[in-house]
Design a protein around this nucleic acid. Structure first.
Lengths: 333, 333
DNA sequence: CTGAAAGCGCTTACAG
DNA sequence: CTGAAAGCGCTTACAG
């Protein structure tokens, strides 16, 4: 590998000058710069980022940890983060915690030894202790919150969106709604449930409702499925079901089909999240769609501007998620 | 940040000794090591991997580039790679090319400046020029091939699996099959089509068949959908359709429902890939399931053993993908 | 505008 | 078994 020293020798210049010319410093004459750039081409010079990091103390490295890489949304978020990082000359070291705090801890140790300058994380509900290890560094939490107070945050307007969705069901005449949620220690679930409850409380007419809470993250789909079957075959069958995210939605849909019911004739269904399958199902589903890519763009820009001291105060951004009306909700007269 | 020098000063030892003790070298007495380890704890020492990389010339960093992170399979593969890397003390710098050669190129430049020691890649069909930039380094190609001859390769037995699947359709009495594939410059599609053709050629009875080729990677689903509708509404409607991957499968399923047909009563369907939705569809789908996680484990172990000189020769591994029979294929008498 | 020198935090021959 | 010294490839005060 050619180094700065090679170029310097070849051109009879000092390392300092070559280094400056390479980085486009204006402490160097135009002629020198051009000579250096040409020579760099000739010897096939490529900067050694490792050396630069060590010397300058700025690694230009950010960490990105998501709670679950097989969540399609996170894929989009990551793609967006990578785009911004690449544009700004940052290296991203990425990892998935798979909802496991020990894996997360290992990833954070690795990041520290690589001198990360900031972290974007979709935390698990146990992340806070891990994050405290980085307390002096800029952290952006995305999608969910760990409880860390100092972090910047980029979130979906869960409360408002779920309220909107619930109001839509009520406006279509539904007066008996089952709401299926995951563990409320995950902040997205908590916020969404509050939105649901708020809509019910503010409704003009009484709305019967029930909350199905599935605590176990592990087998979310299959547990949801068997529980929902009970509701569907019970005496007080709801007219509509809401799923608080797409994993839960998979379980609900599964239950509906297992019971031989059809959407929306026998039961209406509405889901938070818009995975691709939602639109090619026999009945295209009415959903709340999150701007996952936008989430990533925002988080990355926020982190980089924090690292480069372009803003100092804590920022909390809420992006709105839209209700996409398709055909899974029946109008009840 | 505490450094080796801090520990050395505190203990009145040389940097060399501390460094050796920290790395568990047997060039150091047990007592010294224990003293050093204790002091390290006390001052909160954490190794600076950057400095270590620069000095030792071994970055213990591997690159991982996938063609599309929103492909669920790749998520599983990445999770597996991360596991092995973490266990072996390697840092992984991950990126998604999103099927774009320029993005891929930028990622590779970034990896080079970070002194990567090896690369695991799901290439695009244009990757070969980018990969040649790394020709002296160990490269493992996963899932697809770029045409690079020197790389290690971890692949699915596409030919055999698709042949198996096609034979299954034939054994169920299907004699008019539509095969839907993406661009054949992607090696997986090419191999799968050959497997299909091979099964047709070897069949005992004549099997009418047609190949629907969708070249555009961009709108694979919607293009597939509209083309398949033509087949479904035409005079020579097939009795079964095969989709060469899940993206294409989405388009096929979409077309079937848009035509108001039901699976498998009106048409049988079989798909390569087993995304979660395949099993909770109204009719659970018969699919070929790929061992994506296993693919990642194998690739990571292969790369690391190559980096550490535990093997020298080129290795090509084919993992078998299984036919999972569910309910989307009818038996025709 | 250019250069000589120091140093980022490690590891590693070389000597003893 | 331990230490003194050099050096990985850069960048950055300091001088001129």
């Amino acid at each position: 590998m050619a180094s700065i020293a090679d170029i310097a020798k070849k051109l009879n210049l000092s390392n300092s000058t070559v280094s400056r010319a390479l980085r486009d410093s204006n402490l160097v004459t135009k002629e020198t710069r051009e000579k250096v750039l040409l020579a760099a081409q000739e010897v096939g010079y490529e900067v050694n980022a490792i050396a630069r990091k060590l010397r300058s103390g700025e690694s230009r490295t950010i960490g990105v940890i998501v709670s679950d890489i097989t969540n399609l949304q996170h894929g989009e978020t990551i793609t967006a983060i990578q785009k911004i990082a690449l544009e700004n000359g940052y290296t991203v070291i990425f990892g998935t915690s798979s909802e496991d705090e020990n894996t997360e801890r290992k990833l954070i140790d690795l990041l520290k030894s690589n001198m990360l300058q900031g972290l974007i994380i979709v935390p698990t509900w146990k992340s806070i202790n891990n994050l405290k290890l980085l307390k002096h560094l800029p952290i952006v939490e995305v999608d969910r919150l760990s409880g860390l107070e100092s972090s910047d945050q980029v979130l979906i307007s869960n409360h408002e969106s779920m309220k909107l969705a619930t109001n839509y069901l009520i406006s279509q005449g539904h007066r008996n709604i089952l709401y299926c949620t995951g563990d409320l220690s995950i902040t997205t679930f908590d916020e969404r449930l509050r939105g649901f409850n708020c809509a019910i409380a503010e409704a003009d007419s009484a709305v019967a409702h029930d909350i199905l809470l599935i605590k176990d993250t592990d087998k979310l789909q299959s547990r949801t499925c068997s529980e929902v079957i009970n509701y569907l075959t019970g005496k007080n069958k709801p007219s509509a079901i809401i799923a608080a995210n797409d994993f839960i939605g998979e379980g609900v849909v599964s239950a509906i089909y297992k019971c031989g019911l059809s959407i929306p004739k026998d039961i209406s269904f509405l889901m938070f999240d818009d995975p691709r399958w939602a639109s090619f199902f026999p009945t295209p589903l009415t959903v709340i769609r999150q701007p996952a890519y936008q989430l990533g763009l925002t988080a990355a820009n926020l982190l980089i501007s924090k690292i480069e001291n372009k803003h100092k105060n804590q920022e909390i951004k809420r992006l709105s998620a839209d209700l996409v009306v398709r055909q899974s909700v029946a109008k009840i007269e």
